[in-house]
Design a protein around this nucleic acid. Sequence first.
DNA 1: GTCTATACACAGATAGAC
DNA 2: GTCTATCTGTGTATAGAC
Lengths: 233, 233
Amino acid sequence: MNYEEFKKNHASSSEDIARNIFLENRDSIRIKKEKTAVNNLEKIFNAVFSISYKKGFQAMSMRDLSRETSMSLGSLYAYFTGKEKLLGIIHTQGWAIIKKNLEEISTAHENPRKKLSAVIKAHIFLSELFRPWFYFTFMEARNLKPTEFETVKAMEEYTHKTLVDIFSLGEKQGVFKPGNHELTSSMIKGIQQEWYLKRWKYRKLNVSVDQFADHLIGIVEAFCLVQETERTP
Amino acid sequence: MNYEEFKKNHASSSEDIARNIFLENRDSIRIKKEKTAVNNLEKIFNAVFSISYKKGFQAMSMRDLSRETSMSLGSLYAYFTGKEKLLGIIHTQGWAIIKKNLEEISTAHENPRKKLSAVIKAHIFLSELFRPWFYFTFMEARNLKPTEFETVKAMEEYTHKTLVDIFSLGEKQGVFKPGNHELTSSMIKGIQQEWYLKRWKYRKLNVSVDQFADHLIGIVEAFCLVQETERTP
DNA sequence: GTCTATACACAGATAGAC
DNA sequence: GTCTATCTGTGTATAGAC
């Protein structure tokens, strides 16, 4: 599985996401016509990502957002009740996207080695496909209300646990070496984060998402796979 | 070398740092008595880290800072000309600390394997020792003026290059396998960042900084060291 | 549905008494 | 050196015309 294939199976356009947000927040959105609402929501979220990427969500003023979307302040407030609500919507939606897609993948494959590489790749490909959502969710998590922040941490632990379980399974089957799987999994997550946090760096180094994913898998397998020589002495 | 040993050789107390900041910014600081200035600067920086950690530098108001330091607004402005200047001082000082210490280390050791592990460890230990500085420098880099932001990127490339050079040297000497050293180095940096960005997680997992560093080195060596069996067939 | 105009709170920053 | 009081700009948010 490479990125192109992954994209075909998992692509939801940013229009689909906007529609989803519209449907889930119909009560707080004052606009009733679906087509207009979805269109403008898409514009709004893109603008939020663009501005927040440069200076952070806190530093983004509603006037900035108004300028970037070419909508007036008054109009903006017809789409969400306030800046905090806007933040909440993005986080909720962001995690929904990630969760939905990751769950699909981690259940596939039997063989631990294949399972491991599939899950690691899927996570990276997903972060590439929804990069603004991943970046935003990581960088702006501090601004969340405690209850919302808890769901973020829970999600972090869920993806972490997925990896740990695969390592444990593989160890039991004698495919992976024993070791501190918690730590190994955390470090893998750190590298995955590197991909979407420092996208500019890899663009500059001319590294494709497939190269990046394969390199990571190479490192992980070198560390955890039981060597041929050890299995057939 | 473990963390305790490292600490003894490299510890500058937060008072030392405050003194350094005082000496380097004497012209913009209105307070003349060294003892008072150093004392209050220390209090100020600790407060900035504490508040920024929770809600970010942008969201921290001068009134927040006044409350946390038990100093009045007027007094604060005797120590720096404005909020932006404060940000600049922290970044400049942060990078100075990191650079000074890393340069000392990367010149030691001849053997590439030892050199690699020393540099990787040193970086992690340093980030542990000056965690607030590392965390702040990473999370608040977006708020810097372009010129200051450039020095941050330059520093990032400097530490990156240090690793790449060690891998190249080791490859030439037949100690390390050939491979994409740029990518390997980047991934190591990602893991190092993981340590100071998610400190809460490792506290919860009960992982010490020594364990973390050793585990990382284990992974890297499994991947890049030329195997015994390959060297003596 | 979208706009302009405006209310009101709070930000950063300074002046000047002590 | 430190304080209180205050200036001025900008922020979020809303009311009401079109």
